[in-house]
Design a protein around this nucleic acid. Structure first.
Lengths: 128, 128
DNA sequence: TGTACATATTCGCCAAGGCGGATACCATTA
DNA sequence: TAATGGTATCCGCCTTGGCGAATATGTACA
């Protein structure tokens, strides 16, 4: 019936406290260049939404939405102060995750760049 | 002109050897439940494509494509043996990455589940 | 060389989701 | 209370990419 050959192990790695769909959602949050740049910017220190807008150059609404997404996923934390909202990295393990992923990606950057199964050929620059 | 406020640090975390787009691509590979389940299955040990098909229940072509994607991104490694092709996890750091992500996701599973910015309300089960 | 079988690629379809622009929301200040 | 300004949400548009089905490719064996 096509279940796991070793359900216990698989469950131990992905199903315990956070199901596969949830973990996938978690990864997908960092699968967008804009959100990843925002996170990198916040790894540099706490910043307001307007700071982020100035930094990555997307519309204010989009940046706000991306930050909220990162917050929902537990990557960053929001702090209100009057009209301003400051975001900062919520957990030191986020740094570990990014550093680890960067190292792995760097070791495979040639194959990654050539991978046309994600982003297709010559990654269309998503209209200016 | 809206560049990094601290280019050196940001560069050190994301731009050194693997640019933001590449790392995003890397994360996006694990942002799909099917690929994540495949990876979990392979963390259990080496398996052929047909094994994987039987395990996750998607079409053979789709599974083959997902495995090739994981291989391109450096998560898994292929080994040909006659007509069969066996895939296995390529790097022990992949386990670290998954375990770390699972832990973080588990600590935020409530917020993650509630996050409608990814997958929208009641995550449509992508036709059975 | 023909057949069988495991894997890889191609195709059209359609949902997820990133985008800017408009606008709503809310705290500060006059 | 009205105006200002930072942030959040909503909207339609359009690309990315997951899906199965069909088909191509390649290997083993008769």
């Amino acid at each position: 019936m096509s279940e796991a050959a070793n359900p216990a192990l698989v469950s131990g790695l992905l199903g315990e406290g956070a199901d596969v769909g949830t973990v996938a959602k978690f990864f997908r949050a960092l699968g967008d260049p804009s959100r990843l740049r925002l996170l990198a910017f916040l790894l540099d220190g706490e910043h307001s939404v307007s700071d982020c807008v100035a930094h990555i150059g997307l519309s204010q609404g989009r940046v706000s939405s991306h930050l909220a997404c990162l917050a929902d996923c537990g990557y960053v934390q929001a702090r209100r102060e009057g009209r301003w909202c400051y975001y900062r990295v919520a957990d030191p393990r986020v740094v570990e995750l990014v550093v680890l992923a960067r190292a792995l990606a760097a070791d495979n950057r040639a194959a990654l760049a050539a991978c046309e199964r994600i982003d297709g050929p010559e990654a269309a620059p998503r209209r200016t």
